[in-house]
Design a protein around this nucleic acid. Structure first.
Length: 278
DNA sequence: AACGCAAACAACCGCAAAGTA
DNA sequence: TTACTTTGCGGTTGTTTGCGT
């Protein structure tokens, strides 16, 4: 025996909503609210609809704070980043996009964004196979990985040492940790990672990049990375980094994997970097 | 103008979680 | 604690719209 239906399907209207139905539902909800019971609502509102259908229509279309129209580049970036981190949890992703619904985000992903990403990845593969396709950008190439530099000490980091987004006013950060790396989605001026004060910098692997641009020492402004460093004492004993946009032509969100923490032996270099970044 | 196809959007379905008696 | 109801979510399907031939 199957599950009982949520409503009497023979006596409810299905399919697209008419303008009259929209008005009836909107008027009722604005006057009375849901009353905590969507199932009973259609009858009270004089609608021959299933309660679930009413709820969906309201949440996805009629609510006054719904944003209609195309998605911005910024919204694209947030969706991509969060999808990368948490997968198809559309309601969570939508909660980071004011005015957007989970259905909207899901449809947008399935019809447009996924294809856009796939096309971009295909393009990246072409570049990896033929580096001459890369248009040079006017930033100096990053230095060799600091772990090979006598100035630096590479430290293996336990991801639990990282503090991600501890301040209320910061938003847009999402993080996860696995193995011996910490993953964060970073976006200019909107999200950051903080880490223990005894560590001066991080080795990062930007998942989209092609070597050598995807390895960055990220506490001193190497490699054309647009970043801002907060130094301990002002808001926290931790250090933080913002805005890991790997090339100067794009401001999007990219996932980076934090591979290792780094300390510096040279106190003067550390002080200089800190003062110039504040 | 008519047709076919693909994209975009709206709506439905079933499951699981949360709430309640 | 249990059984039942309601809500929320994500996957999927259906419908509409726009464009090319």
């Amino acid at each position: 025996m199957g599950r009982a239906p949520c409503c009497d399907k023979a006596n409810v209207k299905r399919g697209p909503w008419s303008p009259d139905e929209d008005i009836a539902l909107k008027t009722y909800l604005e006057k009375h609210g849901t009353g905590g019971n969507w199932i009973a609502l259609p009858q009270k509102a004089g609608l021959k609809r299933c309660g679930k259908s009413c709820r969906l229509r309201w949440l996805n279309y009629l609510r006054p704070d719904i944003k209609h129209g195309g998605f911005t580049e910024e919204e694209d970036n947030i969706i991509c980043s969060l999808y990368n981190s948490i997968g198809s949890r559309w309601s969570v992703i939508a909660s980071q996009l004011p005015g957007r619904t989970d259905n909207d985000v899901k449809n947008y992903w399935n019809t447009k964004l996924k294809k856009k990403i796939l096309a971009s990845l295909a393009n990246n593969n072409q570049i990896q196979q033929n580096p001459s396709l890369i248009t040079p950008i006017d930033v100096p190439p990053p230095p060799a990985l600091p772990s090979n530099d006598a100035t630096f000490n590479a430290i293996n980091i336990d991801p639990s040492m990282f503090v991600v987004d501890p301040f209320q006013e910061m938003s847009g950060t999402n993080s996860s940790s696995q193995n011996n790396s910490c993953t964060t989605s970073s976006r200019s001026n909107n999200s950051y990672v903080a880490w223990p004060g005894e560590i001066d910098g991080l080795l990062m692997d930007f998942s989209f990049g092609s070597s050598p641009y995807d390895h960055v020492f990220s506490n001193g402004g190497y490699g054309g990375v647009q970043e801002k460093v907060i130094v301990g004492g002002e808001v926290s004993p931790n250090l933080g980094v913002w805005g890991n946009s790997i090339d100067n032509n794009s401001q999007g969100i990219y996932e980076c994997h934090i591979l290792k923490g780094i300390t510096r032996h040279n106190e003067e270099v550390q002080n200089k970097d800190h003062s110039s970044a504040s």
